[in-house]
Amino acid sequence: MNWNYIVRRVALFLVVVWAAASVNFFVPRLGTGRDPIREKLGQLAASGGLRQDGIEAMVKAYQAKFGLDKPLYVQYLNFLGDTFTLDLGYSLANYPARVGQMIGNAIPWTIGLMVVSVLIGFALGTLIGALSAWPNAPPWVRSLAVPFMTLSAIPPYLLGLIVLYILGLKMQWFPLSGGYSPGMLAIASVDFYLDVLHHSILPALAIVLQAVGFWALGMRGMMVTTSGEDYVTLAEANGLRNRTIFFRYGLRNAMLPQFTALGLSLANVVAGQVIVEVIFAYPGIGTVLFQAIQSSDYTVINGVVLILIMSIGLVTMLMDFLYPLLDPRISHSRQN
């Protein structure tokens, strides 16, 4: 990998963010003749029984406040500047909360729960899928993949409801919702972390149970191909240990396509697990997005979508940088 490639790849990432931001900016303005400020004030006036006289003045005042009185290109440049400095404006529903702050509060929860569960599901699924296609694996391990593949056909929110019902409601082993117990002081203490862990197990289970089968299925196919490769045969003929052949010759090579899928899956964590977060009332980005949609909180929706696009762009960029390290046959230096 060389600097030339890195610079071009980062530039491509910035172009993606710019395009996403532009779509975010222009699409709402395509609805001709609608003015959200006037509409909102009109609604307030109507429901509050106020008089309509002052409204024009208020509209003007708000437009000045939000910069909407300026020409379109100035608005656009301001918007781009804000976007690249991650200033996402105010929440409409929770004014004066700032969108950046709302997302910032939610992100650690989403990363902590969702990303970790996706990684666990990936690791387990990859291992089980690989073993299920490995001729020398014990039969009971090989049959493990079947129940997981069945589970993967069930959407995670349904699995969520099932684990909630059985382990939360019937057995009462785990709390039903939230990221931590109400009234718990959200400070860095052992008690708090244990409480968070306790709350995270059910939603994590729902995601892991669903993901394992998905990863196992992909890995199984790759491993069938890889276990027939000449280098695996020769490794066996050279008397390498079974375990070494499995991990360093089989799994290691069969896994390469899995990484691409993992990158996309991690980037999609936020959008993909919205419903799971909502079911468990988990304080992550999915819940923020869900509530924003319910309350037509456009700035928050825009903000979440923008963060989503940025994270997908960022992760695919990182994958591109990582891939030559994983597979030496892929090299970026030749592309000059």
Binding site: Y231, A237, N238, G239, R241, N253, R329
Partner: peptide, 23 residues
């Protein structure tokens, strides 16, 4: 058998094109 391979009986493969671990 594993310990005998390579130490006493070694194999030179046919398809050398793909007989080495690519990574």
């Amino acid at each position: 058998v594993r310990q005998t391979r390579l130490k006493r009986v070694a194999m030179v493969p046919q398809g050398a094109m793909n007989s080495l671990n690519p990574v």
